[in-house]
Every structure is written in structure tokens, then in C-alpha cells.
Design a protein around this nucleic acid. Structure first.
Length: 537
RNA sequence: GCCCCCGUCGUCUAGCGGCCGAGGACGCCGCCCUCUCACGGCGGUAACGUGGGUUCAAAUCCCAUCGGGGGUACCA
């Protein structure tokens, strides 16, 4: 820790949270927000809370919950409080201020809503969706030209209307009264002070007509109840901030939230906690076309990147750099280095484009840094059918297969950028037969000396000592013998043996494959080369 | 329409009044290495949106303008 203040102003360690809706997959933009929260918590020795915002219970299946947890575990952002995958496969929780799924806290939201209502901070809105839409249409187009701002002054029903709706048994949502005038200033760590005029902010619905809490209510309640002191989230939530700080204040006034907590039997707040006093709104993550990052741009969920063979450490490093840079300008950072130098107030303000090419380059570097045995282990799921469609390995892999893979890794490690590329190389080593790539055949076998090289190699390798050096010596001798450059003899042999004009280093590949396989492939390719050459003439 | 945010190479960024004839990284282009492809090494390409101020001095401060984005939901 450098100049990090380990404690917040009131003396308690910082508490931050990541609270996605459980759609099933994690968007890279969300992961970056999670990462920044995590880095902040770890840098300041605070607490990182993971909360699931499944207010809309219909979308929150057990399946999607599991997928979220799995993704968070994989990306490596460990949380101190939140849901937890138990050993028996069920979903439990850890932490003293749970539950950490909003679907399990609905009683609290109701208790708070009743208190806000009793205190006169709310009013009922009996309008139907159609009526609301019609009203907005009229406001937008309207002759009076006013913006569609919902305020108690122009929206609260008269007593007569209320009485009539009551007899009609018409459902109603609950709206929060926001100030009619004046302004509120939000202090944002990345943007500085931002001023909002209440006159242009609508009274939000905090409880739907079916009685469930909406995001502004549930999110605000949980942040205060769980002692979140810094709210770090996407810029898309910036405009919602004023009404949330208003709710925070209301919750703390007269112990309103504390009473509600006690009433429904949820854990009490730590008395030292206040309202979230700091905000950090992160710039959007966009595609290279500057539009909001979506499926049109390719992969957007962290799970997809996993299947494509990106390393979690690469994602953490790359995502950290999407909007932030350490003072010394380094880019390849370990977790410890990021935690050491990360500061939210040095996060940039403009939207960042997600550049897969750079991510891929970073990934290649990290793959090269891996211990070969470690890399071997990481490659297995890309070969046994776990991720890809075709399986080159049995599941589980045989010792012979693993030995072959282990031997292959040093040959391919420095030419991979993604783990899934292993399938491009491994086929020639793990399969009995190799398909000769037609393009390679057309390009290489048609050249002078191709079948001569292959046939000569067959003879030479039949007797060569089986070491890389001896194989190299035997093949280089062919070049002299045939009177052509070594490149001209190596390429046909490469195609014959690996099936492609692009492969790992030839001598090492041959050595790894073994004499039997090598000779049989040379034998099989020789007539193909003869034919290709004949046709070319 | 209204509210809010943003604006340095194609992209991520460094820069916080002179050290900037703007630095790094990815990409791209050359060259070297070389049995292919890579790795690696070396070199190059490329940016302060525009217009006004303030100042001896502006990428850095102010204003305007243009451009981009977010919000404007009984979604989160």
C-alpha cells in the first residue's frame, strides 16, 4: 500500500459492492466494474460485497445464478460477502449482512416502503401503463413544451380521484416525492462535482403496483443496510444518483431503516456506518465503432472469452487498463501490482473501446509466460470436448495422449495467442491419420523436388538415430543430395508429416511423432505429391 | 424535446502552463533472425475535433461550437 488511506472518513474499512442482475452471463463491462470495485477494496484493505439483484425473480433461475457464480469464480475476483457455492453444490452465502440475493429480502423492502409511506414521503399513482404513456406522449409533443417530468404537484391524484379508485379497486404504484426545486450535487471520484436540478428529475416508482420493490428502492436499501460507503458502477447509472442519495438520507433519518431491519429480523447495521458518501461512475465500454458493446461486436460475455481460451489473468489485466493506467505507464501487471497502484480517482472519463486484438496480444504474452506443465493442464479442456465440438483426447485422456500433449506444448507455446488454437496444431500429433490440407498440397507439392524430397526422407529417416539433432542432420543432408535449397526439401516433408505448410518446428515435430508415424505419413503422401507435381507440369 | 457525461495516434492511454518539433502499448508497414508459422530484435507510420479568448508561453485554464454517449420505464 502506498499512500492508501486504509480507512474511510468515519474510521471503518471501505465497503464496496458488485451487484449484477442474474441474466446468466456476465458482460465484460460489468466485469470491469466488478474488477474496479475489487481492486479498490483490496488496495484499501476493505470489503468486497457481491450481491445479486434478482428483484425480477422470473429471470433469476437457479441455472443463471450458478452460471454467474461460476463466471465470477473463474475470473478470479474473490468476494468477502455474498452468495457462495457450497461443496454439496447448493448455493449458500457468506457474510454477516445478508441475505445477498434481493429475492430473499423482499420483506425488508416492503417494511421500508410502508414506513416511507407513513412518513409522507410517497404518494400513490393509480395510472395504468397506457395512461402514463399517453401522458408522456402529450408532454413530449405538447403545446406547453414542457419535458415529461413526473412531480407530485402535477401527478398526485385529488382526494376525489383517490376515493373513486379505491371503490374501483384499481391497483397503484408507489412514487417517491422528490423536491420540487433546488439542486443536489453529487461528488464523483472520476467526474468531480455534478449538479442536478430537482425540477428536471421525475418522482420514481419505488414499489410496483404488484407490491414488489423497484431498483431505486431495493438497491438503495441494500447499499445502506450493507454499509456500502462507495458506489462504483457504470456511467449509465449516473443520472439515477440524485434520487438514490435522497433515499439514502430518508433511510437514515429517524432510524427508519434500522427499525425495518429489526422488524423483519435481518442483521442490524454497524452503528458506525453512514450513507454511501462517494460515487465513481465508470465510463462505458464500447465497441470499436463507438457504439455500446453488444453481441454485434462479437463476444461480450466473460464466459465466451473463457471458451475461446483467454486466461483470467489476461482479462483482469486488460480490463483494468480499459479506463485506467498506473502512474508509471506499465501495462503488463500482476494482480499485486494492480492492487498496489490502483486508484479510482485516476480512472479516465471517456468511453473506452474494447479492442480484442490487444486483448489477444496480451493473452499470447501470458501464455508464453506459463509453466509448460501448467499450460498442458489448461489445454486439456480444449481438446477433450469440454469447450470445442470435436474431441482429440479421450475423456479422461490416456497417459499416452497426455505424454504427447506434454511433448507438444514446448513446440506450440510461443505460437499461441489463445488456448483454443491448440486444436490447429494437435490434430497431427493426436490422430492416427492426418488430412493433407488442399491449399498446402497445391502450394508445395506442385513445386520441383517435392516428391523426391519426401521419398528421400522416407529412406533417410528409416535409419536415422531418433534424436532431434540426428533427424536434422539427416534431412539437411537431403538438401545437398538433391541439390536444392533446404527450404525446398523441408516444406514438402512438413506437409507430408503434419498435413499443413504451417506447423511447429519440423525436426522436433518428427521426433515427437516417432519413427513409425512419420514414415507412414511420408509413404502415404509420396504418391499424392507425385500426382500433384505431374498435374502441375 | 429535456437532463447529465465525454472529446490526445485506428484502439487503450501518458500528459495536469514551459521538460511536447506530444511518450508508451496493441494494430499496421519495413528490416534482421529463420526449415514454415510464430517468438525475439531493430526501425517506421499515425493524434491534441473546430473557433475564440487568458498568458511572455496552452494538449494542458476559460467560453463557444461541432461531434459522440448515457438517461428520460411499474428494466436494472
Amino acid at each position: 500500500m502506498t499512500d492508501a488511506a486504509p480507512l474511510t472518513l468515519n474510521g471503518t474499512p471501505t465497503r464496496v459492492r458488485f451487484c449484477p442482475a442474474p441474466s446468466g452471463w456476465l458482460h465484460v463491462g460489468s466485469v470491469r466494474a466488478a474488477l474496479y470495485n475489487w481492486l479498490h477494496a483490496r488496495h484499501h484493505a476493505g470489503t468486497f460485497v457481491f450481491r445479486i439483484e434478482d428483484t425480477d425473480a422470473s429471470r433469476a433461475t437457479e441455472e443463471s445464478m450458478r452460471s454467474m457464480l461460476d463466471a465470477m469464480l473463474w475470473i478470479g475476483l474473490d468476494w468477502d460477502e455474498g452468495p457462495q457455492l457450497e461443496v454439496d453444490g447448493t448455493i449458500g452465502a457468506r457474510g454477516d449482512y445478508g441475505p445477498y440475493r434481493q429475492s430473499e429480502r423482499s420483506e425488508l423492502y416492503t417494511a421500508v416502503a410502508r414506513r416511507l409511506e407513513a412518513a409522507g414521503h410517497t404518494y400513490r399513482d393509480h395510472r395504468t401503463a397506457e395512461e402514463l404513456e399517453a401522458w408522456r406522449e402529450q408532454q413530449r409533443a405538447g403545446g406547453d413544451g414542457g419535458p415529461p417530468v413526473v412531480k407530485a404537484a402535477n401527478f398526485e391524484h385529488t382526494d376525489d380521484e383517490l376515493a373513486r379508485f379505491a371503490t374501483e379497486d384499481r391497483p397503484a404504484s408507489l412514487r417517491l416525492r422528490t423536491p420540487a426545486s433546488g439542486a443536489t450535487v453529487v461528488t464523483d471520484l472520476v467526474r468531480g462535482e455534478i449538479r442536478f436540478d430537482w425540477a428536471s428529475i421525475s418522482d420514481p416508482v419505488i414499489e410496483r403496483s404488484n407490491g414488489t420493490a423497484t431498483y431505486p428502492l431495493a438497491n438503495s436499501i441494500d447499499d445502506v443496510a450493507q454499509g456500502i460507503d462507495l458506489i462504483c458502477r457504470g456511467e449509465d447509472l449516473l443520472s439515477v444518483t440524485p434520487r438514490q442519495v435522497l433515499i439514502h438520507e430518508l433511510l437514515l433519518a429517524d432510524g427508519l431503516l434500522d427499525e425495518a431491519l429489526a422488524e423483519v429480523g435481518l442483521p442490524p447495521r454497524d452503528p458506525a456506518w453512514g450513507a454511501p458518501r462517494r460515487f465513481a461512475h465508470l465510463p462505458m465500454v464500447v465497441g470499436m465503432d463507438r457504439k455500446k458493446l453488444s453481441k454485434r461486436h462479437g463476444s461480450v460475455s466473460i464466459q465466451e472469452f473463457r471458451r475461446q481460451g483467454f486466461l483470467p489473468a489476461t482479462l483482469r489485466n486488460y480490463l483494468a487498463l480499459l479506463g485506467w493506467a498506473p502512474n508509471d505507464g506499465r501495462e503488463r501487471l500482476t494482480d499485486a501490482e494492480m492492487i498496489e497502484s490502483f486508484e479510482l480517482d485516476s480512472v479516465g472519463r471517456s468511453a473506452a473501446a474494447f479492442d480484442v486484438d490487444k486483448l489477444t496480444a496480451f493473452n499470447g504474452e501470458r501464455i508464453r509466460d506459463l509453466d509448460p506443465d501448467d499450460l498442458t493442464d489448461k489445454l486439456v479442456p480444449f481438446l477433450d470436448g469440454t469447450y470445442g465440438d470435436e474431441a482429440l483426447l479421450d475423456d479422461p485422456a490416456t497417459p499416452q495422449q497426455l505424454a504427447m500433449l506434454r511433448g507438444l506444448v514446448p513446440l506450440i507455446q510461443e505460437r499461441m495467442q489463445r488456448l483454443d488454437e491448440v486444436v490447429n496444431y494437435a490434430g497431427a500429433f493426436l490422430r492416427d491419420h492426418v488430412e493433407l490440407d488442399p491449399a498446402s498440397v497445391a502450394k508445395v507439392f506442385t513445386k520441383a523436388g517435392s516428391y523426391e524430397s519426401i521419398e528421400a526422407a522416407q529412406a533417410a529417416l528409416a535409419e536415422a538415430e531418433w534424436t532431434v539433432d540426428a533427424i536434422e542432420a539427416a534431412l539437411r543432408a537431403l538438401s545437398e543430395e538433391l541439390g536444392i535449397g533446404f527450404g525446398k526439401v523441408a516444406q514438402p516433408i512438413r506437409v507430408a508429416v503434419t498435413g499443413s505448410s504451417v506447423s511447429p518446428p519440423l525436426f522436433e515435430s518428427i521426433e515427437l511423432m516417432g519413427r513409425e508415424l512419420t514414415i507412414s505419413r511420408l509413404a502415404a503422401a509420396a504418391p499424392v505429391a507425385r500426382e500433384a507435381r505431374a498435374e502441375a507440369l
